[in-house]
């Protein structure tokens, strides 16, 4: 199963984020969104992907991006894991029906019954801007995400720039040139 590629509209979802709260993709729209699918809570700690993103969080926020982790673990498991590792961003439970959201993103491993290590950067309008699937045993780090967020910021600035140029072209007749 290949992960959804850039240009695709990110499938909406509503998942448990705490034992008594849900979070939907559409609630996050309007900002850049990083979705990080990962196989399981409680993997060995020092090389842990979520622990790393926790440390890089200020950098994601500097780009105006929200990050959420997704695995098939249940909300109570996420709660214990987040508390233990002081995770400061939402962890979504793709728990029931199991892996349904991961499947929509092409990020589910049916054989093992867990999510791939798949990363998505989604733009403000809900389009996938960048995606990457890492070998399951390899923590992909944060460099790819940061690069994608920078490219996305540049693209946004580029668009504003184009608009300004168009605007000045429109004004030209009035200047008499």
């Amino acid at each position: 199963m290949a992960v959804l590629s850039p240009g695709t509209t990110a499938p909406d979802f509503t998942l448990r984020v705490t034992p008594d709260q849900n979070l939907s993709l559409k609630e996050l729209l309007g900002r850049s969104i990083v979705l990080a699918f990962y196989p399981a809570d409680w993997s060995p700690v020092c090389g842990d992907q979520m622990a790393l993103y926790n440390e890089v969080l200020p950098e994601f926020q500097r780009h105006g991006a929200e990050i959420a982790g997704i695995s098939v673990d249940g909300a109570w498991c996420h709660a214990a894991y987040a508390k233990h590792n002081h995770i400061h961003f939402p962890l979504l439970a793709d728990f029931e029906p199991k892996g349904e959201v991961a499947k929509k993103y092409g990020a589910y491993r049916s054989k093992e019954g867990v999510c791939e290590r798949a990363l998505f950067v989604i733009d403000e309008e809900g389009k996938i801007f960048w995606s990457y699937c890492s070998p399951i045993a390899v923590n992909p780090g944060a460099e790819g995400i940061l690069e994608a967020l920078e490219d996305l910021s540049k693209k946004k600035k580029g668009n504003t720039h184009d608009n300004l140029e168009n605007a000045s072209q429109l004004e030209r007749p009035h200047t008499g040139r």
Binding site: G47, N139, A142, E143, L146
Partner: peptide, 13 residues
Amino acid sequence: DFLSGVRSGVNGT
């Protein structure tokens, strides 16, 4: 130091 590591693909220690 930390960020230079992140940019170099450091994913753990």
